[in-house]
Nucleic acid binder design. Structure first.
Lengths: 211, 211
DNA sequence: TTGTCAACTGTCAGTCGCTGTCACTAATCT
DNA sequence: AGATTAGTGACAGCGACTGACAGTTGACAA
């Protein structure tokens, strides 16, 4: 008889969002390593223990939003028309995911804050490390989607993995260069991505089924 | 009048090697997270503080040998004949570096232990993360070497970075698959690498200067 | 040989990330 | 309303890591 989630659920969501936002705010202003979990908890006025009930560790807070974006990317990729070559589909999916991000993320955290977070990740060694690991975990899933699209068996045919690995490599380079640059706009990273992928395209875009 | 390094230097080297070996031995047998720095120090009979004077952190001990291999890889790459295409040079350099490894590593740590370490890295999330980060740091240096070989300016021409990124992506996939497999031999990883790179080869091997 | 200096080390105290436990409160179910 | 269960705070404890200080020991000159 109740519309939507109950009071308890809403309260939980509010606490989580408050923690997330406070964490990102602190991380991006005074630095990740320099921010203690105690400070985050204090900013939201909960105990340190509560923070760890919402996030398994300090890092998890950093990547909570990225998580959403990645999930969205895979989702968009699955929806790409079957006639597109793997690389084209991948390319359009990334650009599409960033497009959609603007709308869906804002509810949790300002996009501006998310972009700052991304740059912080790129410039914080320990976070960059986790970012990389997360990437390869996604990579496997993406390779599976590609293999499916092309009707190939991923276990016997290395091409899906190889192509996705190459694609991901390029994605990381662009992310890194963007993070090191000045222009923090969403537009600039989309442009850079497109440009870099275009260089890989001619090399990998030929149809796998004609040879 | 004295041949070689002094007593102090030798003693230092011995302590470091002992720590390194004890650490890897413990890591690979009882697991990385399950091994405390205290245990490592105790195994070598020094204080915990001394361990941290040789290694900035627990992870650094894990990657000490990898560091040598990577340095060797870059070295071999620089020596590859100029007429080879970038991808061929990269390919031969990896295989060559592993070849040379057998000889140069044994002085510090048994090769067998090093291979186990590699597999442990692949199966330990926090270590895999660091491994990834280290990879991209090497990537930049490798891209520089490639750009130099081809007489290109890395700042204006994205191709060196893109090619190296794609190459590195494939390298990581092979390393991951090898780590997950059964065959722990040096030979098996070399074979897997060659095989996987062959799939990227046809796509990226064309000479950059003819078009 | 001896004394001085600098490098290397051990000890101790302390911070921070993270986990387990337990008791208490408040939302949900019956 | 009473029982159940989720969410929380307080506290204790572990392990990685750091800073400060003092003791020891090679290196090197007098």
């Amino acid at each position: 008889m109740n519309s939507g989630p109950g009071l308890r659920e809403r309260k939980k969501q509010r606490t989580r969002n408050a923690l997330l936002r406070a964490a990102l705010e602190l991380f991006t202003t005074k630095g990740y390593e320099e921010t203690t979990v105690d400070e985050i908890a204090e900013a939201v006025d909960v105990s340190q223990r509560t923070f760890f009930r919402y996030f398994a560790n300090k890092q998890e807070a950093v990547f909570a939003v990225q998580e959403m974006v990645e999930a969205r990317f895979v989702e968009v990729l699955r929806e790409r028309p079957a006639h597109e070559t793997p690389l084209v589909a991948l390319r359009e999916a990334v650009l599409g995911a960033w497009e959609a991000m603007g709308q869906s993320i804002e509810e949790v955290v300002p996009v501006e804050l998310h972009m700052s977070t991304y740059q912080m990740i790129e410039s914080t060694p320990s976070l960059l490390a986790v970012h990389m690991r997360r990437s390869i975990e996604t990579e496997d899933e993406v390779a599976r989607v590609i293999a499916e699209r092309e009707g190939l068996d991923m276990e016997t045919d290395p091409r899906p993995r190889v192509a996705v690995a190459a694609f991901s490599g390029v994605m990381r380079v662009t992310g890194r260069l963007w993070g090191a640059g000045e222009d923090t706009s969403l537009e600039s990273i989309r442009e850079l991505t497109g440009q870099y992928l275009d260089h890989l395209g001619p090399a990998l875009a030929q149809d796998w089924h004609t040879r």
